[in-house]
């Protein structure tokens, strides 16, 4: 196929890419405009007078750093918890026989197929009854346990050769040592994929934080941004600035860890 020309393909892809990027470009241009300029017809493309008032309004009305800390804290808690819990269970399901293993694993798979909304009422009741509403742990706890994560880790351990494991066992390592020093390091690509997927989901989630932070204390970024929009419904430069500032952290992480993101999505196809 080397002799075929690729410029028509590039042309099509560039047109598609431009359509993908236009909303972001428009958002960034809007951030630097004044509120009256944004309402002009026809719209101006470049800001007539370069204004930073949008950022000033955003940072002076929204506790960005505390929202950022809540989003980050709950993400770390959820990711570390889920990866640890899922890796341990996945290893046992793949490598350590015990009575009732298939039945128990079947239960995990069954829960995997149930849409998340079916759990929300009960999860909310537990969080409320334990007095955890409006707290950081409330945001992270249900997501620390994941049938999907367990399933993914089991797959990773199933595909590993048994030789290393047996050698370590004969050297007198106990099952936890075998797991920790021998098997877990070999599962690094899957651990990275699970970390990225769980982190992405935790960072983006709106519905669960909305439910468990009724008072508005300890709000993560998505809930805070939604509140900003309720407050400044037509001040588009401020809204665009908020949307930009809150989105940038994850976009930067993605640009640094592209391969892990792509592999995570490809290995699982997890969506939403």
């Amino acid at each position: 196929m080397g002799e075929r020309r690729t410029w028509p393909i590039h042309l099509l892809l560039i047109v598609a890419s431009v359509i993908m990027v236009v909303p972001f470009a428009w958002q960034i241009l809007t951030v630097f405009k004044t509120t009256p300029e944004v309402a002009r017809i026809p719209p101006t493309v470049l800001p007539e007078e370069f204004s930073l008032h949008a950022f000033e309004t955003f940072f002076s009305t929204v506790p960005f750093w505390s929202m950022f800390a809540v989003s980050t804290g709950s993400l770390v808690l959820r990711v570390v918890g889920q990866v640890a819990v899922a890796a341990l269970a996945g290893y046992a399901f793949a490598r350590l026989p015990f009575p009732g293993r298939n039945v128990l694993f079947g239960l995990f798979v069954a829960m995997l197929m149930v849409p998340s909304q079916l759990f929300l009422i009960g999860q909310y009741g537990l969080i409320r009854d334990f007095g955890l509403l409006d707290t950081l742990p409330a945001l992270a706890i249900p997501g620390m346990f994941s049938a999907f994560g367990t399933f993914l880790m089991r797959q990773a351990f199933l595909n590993m050769p048994a030789d290393f494991e047996e050698a370590a066992r004969l050297d007198g390592a106990n099952p936890f040592q075998v797991f920790w020093y021998v098997m877990l390091p070999m599962a690094k690509p899957t651990l990275a994929a699970l970390t990225v997927l769980t982190g992405l989901y935790s960072w983006n989630d709106l519905l669960w934080p909305l439910i468990v932070s009724p008072s508005g204390e300890n709000r993560p970024l998505p809930v805070g941004l939604a509140g900003l929009q309720g407050q400044f419904g037509t001040d588009y430069p401020t809204l665009m600035a908020g949307a930009l500032v809150c989105s940038i952290p994850l976009v930067l992480v993605f640009l640094l860890l592209q391969r892990q993101f792509f592999r995570g999505i490809a290995s699982s196809g997890l969506k939403g």
Binding site: A16, P23, F24, L225, G242, C246, F254, I265
Partner: peptide, 19 residues
Amino acid sequence: LFFLPVVTLPVAVGMVWRF
């Protein structure tokens, strides 16, 4: 470029498109 909307907060995406 095609992946950027996936890593942008859905709330932010909704705000930009509403505009």
